[in-house]
Amino acid sequence: MNFELETASLPSENLRRVAIDPVSRVEGHGKVTILLDEDNKVHQVRLHIVEFRGFERFIQGRPYWEVPVMVQRLCGICPVSHHLAASKALDLIVGASKVTPTADKMRRLMHYGQILQSHALHFFHLSSPDLLFGFGSSLGFTLALVLFAGIRERLDGADVPLAFKGTAIAMITAGFMSLAFMGFAGLDRFQ
Protein backbone atom coordinates (compact mmCIF):
# COMPACT_ATOMS: atom_id res chain seq x y z
CA MET A 1 0.00 0.00 0.00
CA ASN A 2 1.33 3.43 -0.78
CA PHE A 3 0.42 5.86 1.99
CA GLU A 4 0.35 9.49 1.11
CA LEU A 5 2.64 11.61 3.26
CA GLU A 6 0.32 13.91 5.13
CA THR A 7 1.03 17.51 4.18
CA ALA A 8 -0.38 20.93 5.01
CA SER A 9 -2.70 21.17 2.03
CA LEU A 10 -4.60 24.39 2.75
CA PRO A 11 -8.36 23.63 3.02
CA SER A 12 -10.84 25.84 1.13
CA GLU A 13 -11.24 28.75 3.66
CA ASN A 14 -7.77 30.26 3.90
CA LEU A 15 -5.90 29.68 7.11
CA ARG A 16 -3.17 31.96 8.28
CA ARG A 17 0.24 30.30 8.43
CA VAL A 18 2.54 31.08 11.33
CA ALA A 19 6.00 29.55 11.40
CA ILE A 20 8.43 29.24 14.26
CA ASP A 21 11.55 28.90 12.18
CA PRO A 22 14.01 27.77 13.34
CA VAL A 23 13.09 25.93 16.47
CA SER A 24 16.14 26.63 18.52
CA ARG A 25 15.52 24.97 21.84
CA VAL A 26 16.60 21.57 20.60
CA GLU A 27 19.67 20.22 18.90
CA GLY A 28 19.24 19.90 15.18
CA HIS A 29 17.13 21.84 12.78
CA GLY A 30 13.38 22.04 12.92
CA LYS A 31 10.49 24.28 12.06
CA VAL A 32 6.99 24.46 13.50
CA THR A 33 4.13 25.67 11.27
CA ILE A 34 0.77 26.59 12.75
CA LEU A 35 -2.39 27.15 10.69
CA LEU A 36 -4.92 29.46 12.39
CA ASP A 37 -8.25 30.83 11.23
CA GLU A 38 -9.32 34.50 11.57
CA ASP A 39 -10.09 34.30 15.28
CA ASN A 40 -6.74 32.64 15.97
CA LYS A 41 -8.15 29.15 16.48
CA VAL A 42 -5.44 26.66 15.70
CA HIS A 43 -6.41 24.12 13.00
CA GLN A 44 -3.17 22.35 12.22
CA VAL A 45 0.28 22.31 13.80
CA ARG A 46 3.30 20.48 12.36
CA LEU A 47 6.91 20.02 13.35
CA HIS A 48 9.10 19.77 10.24
CA ILE A 49 12.50 18.15 10.50
CA VAL A 50 14.16 20.18 7.77
CA GLU A 51 17.62 18.71 7.70
CA PHE A 52 18.56 15.86 5.36
CA ARG A 53 22.25 14.82 5.19
CA GLY A 54 22.32 11.17 4.08
CA PHE A 55 24.77 9.75 6.63
CA GLU A 56 23.08 6.35 6.26
CA ARG A 57 24.13 6.29 2.61
CA PHE A 58 27.60 7.82 2.58
CA ILE A 59 28.96 5.72 5.45
CA GLN A 60 28.47 2.76 3.12
CA GLY A 61 31.75 1.83 1.49
CA ARG A 62 33.78 3.42 4.28
CA PRO A 63 36.21 1.29 6.37
CA TYR A 64 34.05 0.03 9.24
CA TRP A 65 36.36 1.41 11.96
CA GLU A 66 35.77 4.93 10.61
CA VAL A 67 32.02 4.78 11.05
CA PRO A 68 31.83 5.45 14.82
CA VAL A 69 34.02 8.53 14.33
CA MET A 70 31.91 9.65 11.36
CA VAL A 71 28.50 9.28 12.96
CA GLN A 72 29.59 11.31 16.00
CA ARG A 73 29.09 14.27 13.69
CA LEU A 74 25.38 13.54 13.47
CA CYS A 75 24.91 15.66 16.59
CA GLY A 76 27.26 17.99 18.40
CA ILE A 77 25.41 17.61 21.69
CA CYS A 78 25.12 13.84 21.84
CA PRO A 79 28.07 12.58 19.79
CA VAL A 80 28.79 9.89 22.36
CA SER A 81 25.39 8.28 21.85
CA HIS A 82 25.91 7.97 18.13
CA HIS A 83 29.48 6.78 18.66
CA LEU A 84 28.30 4.04 21.02
CA ALA A 85 25.44 3.04 18.75
CA ALA A 86 27.90 2.59 15.89
CA SER A 87 30.30 0.70 18.15
CA LYS A 88 27.56 -1.68 19.22
CA ALA A 89 26.62 -2.24 15.60
CA LEU A 90 30.27 -3.03 14.87
CA ASP A 91 30.39 -5.47 17.77
CA LEU A 92 28.15 -7.71 15.69
CA ILE A 93 30.25 -7.23 12.57
CA VAL A 94 33.59 -8.04 14.21
CA GLY A 95 32.08 -10.89 16.19
CA ALA A 96 32.66 -9.29 19.58
CA SER A 97 29.23 -10.33 20.78
CA LYS A 98 30.45 -10.51 24.39
CA VAL A 99 32.05 -7.14 25.24
CA THR A 100 34.84 -7.21 27.85
CA PRO A 101 33.97 -5.70 31.25
CA THR A 102 36.45 -2.87 30.79
CA ALA A 103 34.89 -1.94 27.44
CA ASP A 104 31.42 -2.09 28.98
CA LYS A 105 32.44 0.12 31.90
CA MET A 106 34.18 2.56 29.59
CA ARG A 107 31.06 2.81 27.43
CA ARG A 108 28.88 3.44 30.47
CA LEU A 109 31.28 6.03 31.84
CA MET A 110 31.31 7.82 28.48
CA HIS A 111 27.52 7.75 28.38
CA TYR A 112 27.11 9.01 31.97
CA GLY A 113 29.58 11.78 31.23
CA GLN A 114 27.46 12.83 28.31
CA ILE A 115 24.23 12.59 30.27
CA LEU A 116 25.67 14.96 32.87
CA GLN A 117 26.95 17.28 30.17
CA SER A 118 23.67 17.16 28.30
CA HIS A 119 21.65 18.02 31.39
CA ALA A 120 23.82 20.96 32.22
CA LEU A 121 23.77 22.00 28.62
CA HIS A 122 20.03 21.59 28.26
CA PHE A 123 19.41 23.63 31.32
CA PHE A 124 21.92 26.41 30.88
CA HIS A 125 21.80 26.67 27.12
CA LEU A 126 18.51 25.36 25.92
CA SER A 127 15.82 25.96 28.52
CA SER A 128 17.13 28.50 31.03
CA PRO A 129 17.45 31.28 28.43
CA ASP A 130 13.67 31.04 27.95
CA LEU A 131 13.15 31.37 31.66
CA LEU A 132 15.90 33.84 32.41
CA PHE A 133 15.52 35.94 29.28
CA GLY A 134 11.89 36.49 30.24
CA PHE A 135 13.22 37.71 33.60
CA GLY A 136 15.89 40.31 32.81
CA SER A 137 18.15 37.92 31.03
CA SER A 138 21.68 39.24 31.45
CA LEU A 139 21.14 39.42 35.22
CA GLY A 140 19.72 35.87 35.48
CA PHE A 141 22.15 34.33 33.10
CA THR A 142 25.09 36.03 34.77
CA LEU A 143 23.82 34.88 38.16
CA ALA A 144 23.83 31.27 36.99
CA LEU A 145 27.27 31.59 35.44
CA VAL A 146 28.87 33.41 38.35
CA LEU A 147 27.56 30.76 40.74
CA PHE A 148 28.88 28.06 38.47
CA ALA A 149 32.27 29.77 38.11
CA GLY A 150 32.48 30.35 41.84
CA ILE A 151 31.79 26.69 42.65
CA ARG A 152 34.41 25.62 40.14
CA GLU A 153 37.00 27.89 41.76
CA ARG A 154 36.24 26.38 45.14
CA LEU A 155 36.56 22.93 43.57
CA ASP A 156 40.10 23.66 42.49
CA GLY A 157 41.20 23.63 46.08
CA ALA A 158 38.85 20.84 47.18
CA ASP A 159 40.04 17.25 47.71
CA VAL A 160 38.48 15.74 44.58
CA PRO A 161 39.23 12.08 43.72
CA LEU A 162 41.70 11.87 40.83
CA ALA A 163 39.19 10.26 38.47
CA PHE A 164 36.79 13.16 38.92
CA LYS A 165 39.23 16.06 38.75
CA GLY A 166 38.63 18.74 36.12
CA THR A 167 35.70 18.44 33.77
CA ALA A 168 34.05 15.49 35.44
CA ILE A 169 33.46 17.25 38.77
CA ALA A 170 32.47 20.42 36.93
CA MET A 171 29.79 18.49 35.05
CA ILE A 172 28.47 16.95 38.21
CA THR A 173 28.18 20.33 39.92
CA ALA A 174 26.48 21.70 36.81
CA GLY A 175 24.07 18.78 37.01
CA PHE A 176 23.19 19.59 40.62
CA MET A 177 22.86 23.29 39.83
CA SER A 178 20.51 22.56 36.95
CA LEU A 179 18.33 20.56 39.37
CA ALA A 180 18.37 23.56 41.70
CA PHE A 181 17.41 26.01 38.95
CA MET A 182 14.49 23.78 37.97
CA GLY A 183 12.73 25.58 40.80
CA PHE A 184 12.32 28.63 38.56
CA ALA A 185 10.41 26.60 36.00
CA GLY A 186 6.97 27.65 37.19
CA LEU A 187 7.59 31.41 36.82
CA ASP A 188 6.65 31.51 33.17
CA ARG A 189 2.93 31.78 33.93
CA PHE A 190 3.42 35.27 35.35
CA GLN A 191 4.35 36.75 31.96
Partner: peptide, 24 residues
Protein backbone atom coordinates in the same frame (compact mmCIF):
# COMPACT_ATOMS: atom_id res chain seq x y z
CA UNK B 1 23.81 30.16 13.21
CA UNK B 2 24.19 26.52 12.32
CA UNK B 3 23.44 25.73 8.68
CA UNK B 4 24.04 22.02 7.97
CA UNK B 5 26.02 21.79 11.22
CA UNK B 6 25.53 19.52 14.23
CA UNK B 7 25.81 22.35 16.82
CA UNK B 8 29.14 20.87 17.93
CA UNK B 9 30.83 24.17 17.16
CA UNK B 10 28.22 26.06 19.17
CA UNK B 11 28.89 23.67 22.03
CA UNK B 12 32.59 24.29 21.67
CA UNK B 13 31.85 28.00 21.69
CA UNK B 14 30.25 27.48 25.11
CA UNK B 15 33.34 25.56 26.19
CA UNK B 16 35.13 28.88 26.64
CA UNK B 17 33.35 28.52 30.01
CA UNK B 18 33.77 31.41 32.40
CA UNK B 19 35.50 33.47 29.71
CA UNK B 20 31.96 33.97 28.39
CA UNK B 21 31.66 36.72 30.99
CA UNK B 22 34.49 38.97 29.70
CA UNK B 23 33.26 38.19 26.19
CA UNK B 24 29.74 39.33 27.12
Amino acid sequence: VSLAGCFGCHMSFLDIDERLLPLL
